[in-house]
Amino acid sequence: MIQRRGLTIGQISDRTGLAPSAIRFYEEQGLVTPDRTDAGQRRYAGSDIRRLSFVMIAQNLGFSISEIRAQMASLPQERTPTKADWTRIANRFRRVLDQRIRQMQALSDKLDGCIGCGCLSLQTCRLYNPQDRAARLGRGPRYLMGNSASEVE
């Protein structure tokens, strides 16, 4: 019978493509929690392959370790996460990704026009943001951050 936590760090490394040092880092960050043998060697569960793969994907999508850790905290430690467990996390990440997509679309659509940054250097900025009215909404490129010109009128 296969032990629940019987994979070595080398086996996990082979399966995920992560260097053992990266796996140890993710352990330090609380993203995986291997058992230890009597000799102190790490032993991972098969489900840790999925956890680490998820971390790699989430990082590639721009999520920080702390954001990933916060979401993965809801995964059960006493059993292998189910599809429903992963779906809950995926739905939370999807909402963030959808917001980022909307922001990127706004950036793409408005990049060559007034973004409410206060520079007033483009002729059109004088039309869309006279006297830097967008500054009342806060610092930075207000129109790209979700504000609209109608909020300052």
Rank of each mutant, 00 (worst) to 15 (best):
Q3K: 15
R4V: 06
R4Q: 13
G6N: 13
L7W: 10
T8Q: 05
T8R: 04
I12A: 02
D14F: 02
T16Q: 07
L18G: 06
S21A: 12
A22H: 03
Q29A: 14
Q29E: 15
Q29I: 05
G30W: 10
L31K: 09
V32T: 10
T33R: 14
D35F: 14
T37R: 11
G40P: 07
G40R: 12
G40C: 06
G40H: 08
D48K: 07
R51W: 08
R51S: 08
L52E: 07
S53N: 10
F54I: 05
V55P: 12
M56G: 06
A58Q: 08
Q59K: 14
G62C: 04
F63E: 03
I65A: 00
A70D: 14
P76Q: 03
Q77A: 04
R79Y: 04
T80L: 00
T82W: 03
D85C: 04
W86M: 01
W86G: 01
I89W: 05
A90W: 06
R92W: 01
V96E: 15
R102G: 09
R102I: 09
Q103K: 05
Q103M: 08
D109G: 11
K110W: 14
L111S: 11
C114A: 06
I115T: 15
G118L: 15
C119I: 09
S121F: 11
S121I: 12
S121H: 14
C125E: 06
Y128L: 13
N129Q: 03
N129M: 01
P130K: 01
P130Y: 03
L137R: 03
P141Q: 07
R142P: 02
Y143R: 08
Y143P: 07
L144D: 11
G146K: 05
N147P: 02
S148W: 02
S148G: 12
S150D: 15
S150A: 15
V152A: 01
